[in-house]
Lab assay of single mutants.
Amino acid sequence: MTEYKLVVVGAGGVGKSALTIQLIQNHFVDEYDPTIEDSYRKQVVIDGETCLLDILDTAGQEEYSAMRDQYMRTGEGFLCVFAINNTKSFEDIHHYREQIKRVKDSEDVPMVLVGNKCDLPSRTVDTKQAQDLARSYGIPFIETSAKTRQGVDDAFYTLVREIRKHKEKMSKDGKKKKKKSKTKCVIM
């Protein structure tokens, strides 16, 4: 069974824990209790493949930012979460993405942009803004509501699919490099 290491990042209060708990335990946590770091595991079937999701729910508070490099190193894919009623959390996505790329030393890291709290009427981040940002990053965008469960499975499952595509691409690139290195030079 394939294991996928997913990391949920975003500013404090955007609903990272609520999304994760909704996926794992099928219930909505409405009281806000700032996370330092929590880890969850769940076995699911995605596109006919049974897999184990190892999900790291991270601290959004700035005082825990020193811990970010460590979990970013171990993560295979990242859910970059903002709240649709919090423009600052949307603007912060850029910083999370840049930090992930720096730590992973790669421009090509599996990510999904997630606009959470889409059940709320007080939207300050337009869907088109988020779609445009995701398009500019070359990553999928999904709106979710941890409260109603809308888009929750889709967000995590899409990230797994992005990781699969990335692994497939990397193995193809690896095979191309191996083929090239088999060419021999004969000096007579």
Rank of each mutant, 00 (worst) to 15 (best):
M111Q: 03
G77I: 12
C118R: 10
R149I: 03
I100V: 12
A18T: 04
F141I: 04
Y137R: 05
L19H: 11
Y32F: 03
V114P: 00
A83D: 15
D57Y: 00
V14D: 15
A59G: 09
K182H: 02
L52P: 13
L79K: 02
K88Q: 12
R68V: 11
G115S: 08
T183I: 06
Y71E: 15
P34M: 03
I84G: 15
D119C: 07
I46Y: 11
Q131W: 06
A59H: 01
K172A: 07
D154C: 04
D154R: 05
T50M: 11
K104D: 14
Q43C: 05
G10N: 01
E76M: 12
D119A: 15
K172P: 12
A18E: 00
K177Y: 04
T74G: 13
E168K: 03
I187D: 15
I163M: 11
N26Q: 12
S181Q: 10
R68G: 14
D119V: 08
G174P: 04
T127A: 05
G10S: 14
L56R: 01
P121S: 10
Q131G: 11
I100S: 07
V103M: 14
I24G: 15
Q150L: 09
V8C: 05
H166C: 09
P121M: 10
T124Q: 08
L133H: 14
C80H: 09
A59C: 06
R164A: 12
H94G: 13
R149G: 07
Y40S: 00
I46K: 08
I84L: 13
Y4L: 10
R97S: 09
K184I: 03
E3D: 07
Y4A: 07
K101V: 12
K182Y: 10
M72W: 12
S145G: 15
G75A: 15
K165W: 10
P110Q: 02
K172T: 15
V186H: 13
E76T: 12
D173Y: 12
D108R: 07
I55F: 03
Q25M: 14
R135F: 10
S89D: 14
E168D: 08
V44G: 09
F82G: 12
T58S: 09
D38L: 00
H27Q: 15
E162H: 10
G10F: 03
Y157I: 09
D47G: 10
V81A: 05
R123K: 11
Y40G: 00
K180F: 15
G15P: 04
D132C: 04
R73D: 13
T127L: 05
R135H: 07
T183W: 03
L79Q: 03
G77M: 10
Q61N: 13
L6N: 02
T2D: 14
R149W: 04
Y40R: 00
E162L: 08
K147L: 04
L159D: 01
E62A: 05
P121R: 06
T183K: 14
D153H: 07
P110K: 02
S145F: 11
Y137D: 09
E98Y: 03
Y71I: 13
S89R: 13
R161F: 01
V14P: 09
V114Y: 04
G115F: 13
D108K: 11
A11D: 13
I187A: 15
T74N: 09
D38Y: 00
V186D: 15
Q131N: 11
K176C: 08
T158C: 10
K169D: 08
E49S: 11
H166Q: 09
A18P: 02
L159S: 01
K167H: 07
H166I: 09
D33K: 00
I100K: 01
G60L: 00
G151T: 12
V8N: 03
C185L: 02
Q25F: 06
K104E: 03
L113D: 02
M111K: 01
E63R: 05
K117M: 15
T58E: 01
C118K: 08
E63M: 03
A18D: 02
G75M: 10
S17D: 00
R68I: 15
Y64A: 11
C51D: 05
V186N: 12
I36G: 00
K128D: 06
D119L: 12
Y64Q: 14
L120R: 14
K184P: 03
C185N: 14
A155G: 12
V160A: 04
